[in-house]
């Protein structure tokens, strides 16, 4: 930060009439206005001053959950390319700043993007469809022919499963994170509501937190739905494969570990889709 800018921030802080003792709560509108910047640039300036040992920034622990939600939203936006590069970078920077205030380590990278790996998912989808069709025609062809075709399909599927391993693992991690966050948001919200009901009072601070939790939950559910629909575009026979999960696993188990783990990962992703939607 430029020295003149530092001086300006310090003067703004120490002359803030809302300051009580040596501390004040960050007010994005006021501080941003007084510094002539947007609120995120103002927060960035404060973070620099914390690095210089002049300020100490802290936030209540309940903000950590909302930080995780914001981080996941940015990850999903990157994964599905919902926004342009600039916008995602700027969102990520904001989340990173929040992480700095909470003293949490933000990830260095945002992860993979679905479109880059779409052909690999489509290839796996195609091979698994071939397996399903082959299984259906088992009684119609001789064992010899069946085994010859099966070994070829299994070889191709093993290779496709290996190629899709990375993106399936990323997808699984993203979906697991979303579903865990939704559960945590629901628990946190009901805990506050329960306490408020027991005490018989509603505090504005708690109410605003409940609103933020509810809004975050709604956004995450929407994102989960979006992840599913985008996934189905690259993996059109997703549901058919999972319906025949046991069949595929027992009949073509010899395909190898990559195939088995791809199926298991797909099942675990699907379970999260179903579980979250059912509870919601």
């Amino acid at each position: 930060m430029e020295p003149a800018e530092t001086r300006k921030v310090l003067l703004t802080l120490v002359t803030d009439p809302r300051r009580f003792g040596s501390s004040l709560y960050f007010n994005p509108d006021v501080l941003g206005f007084r510094l002539g910047t947007d609120s995120w640039t103002a927060l960035e300036a404060l973070v620099s001053l914390e690095d210089a040992g002049i300020l100490k920034l802290s936030a209540p622990p309940e903000l950590e959950l909302l930080y995780q939600v914001e981080l996941t939203k940015v990850r999903v936006a990157n994964f599905l390319e919902l926004k342009g590069y600039q916008e995602i970078t700027s969102d990520f920077k904001r989340v990173w700043l929040l992480g700095r205030v909470l003293k949490l380590e933000s990830p260095q990278q945002l992860g993979l993007r679905l479109t880059d790996y779409s052909p690999r998912l489509s290839a796996l989808s195609g091979n698994l469809t071939k397996m399903l069709k082959l299984f259906e025609s088992k009684s119609l062809v001789s064992k010899e022919v069946y085994m010859r075709v099966a070994s070829s399909v299994m070889r191709e599927t093993a290779s496709a499963a290996r190629d899709a391993k990375e993106i399936l693992s990323e997808l699984s991690d993203l979906v697991r994170t979303i579903s865990q966050l939704i559960s945590r948001l629901r628990e946190a919200r009901s805990s506050i509501e329960e306490t408020s009901a027991k005490l018989g009072i509603k505090l504005e601070e708690n109410e605003s937190l409940i609103r933020a939790y509810r809004e975050s939950e709604r956004e995450l559910l929407e994102l989960l739905g979006l992840v599913k629909s985008k996934l189905l575009e690259s993996f059109p026979n997703w549901s058919a494969v999972l319906t025949s999960y046991d069949k595929l696993r027992s009949e073509f188990g010899a395909t190898g570990q990559d195939f088995i783990s791809a199926l298991e990962t797909m099942k675990s992703i699907n379970d999260k889709f179903v579980l979250v939607t059912q509870i919601g």
Binding site: L10, Y25, F26, P28, I54, S58, A59
Partner: peptide
């Protein structure tokens, strides 16, 4: 809205800094 919950404390000697 979340930013409003951030507490800023002046802990260092800012007068020397200026």
């Amino acid at each position: 809205e979340l930013l409003r919950r951030i507490k800023v404390e002046i802990v260092g000697n800012y007068r020397n800094f200026v």
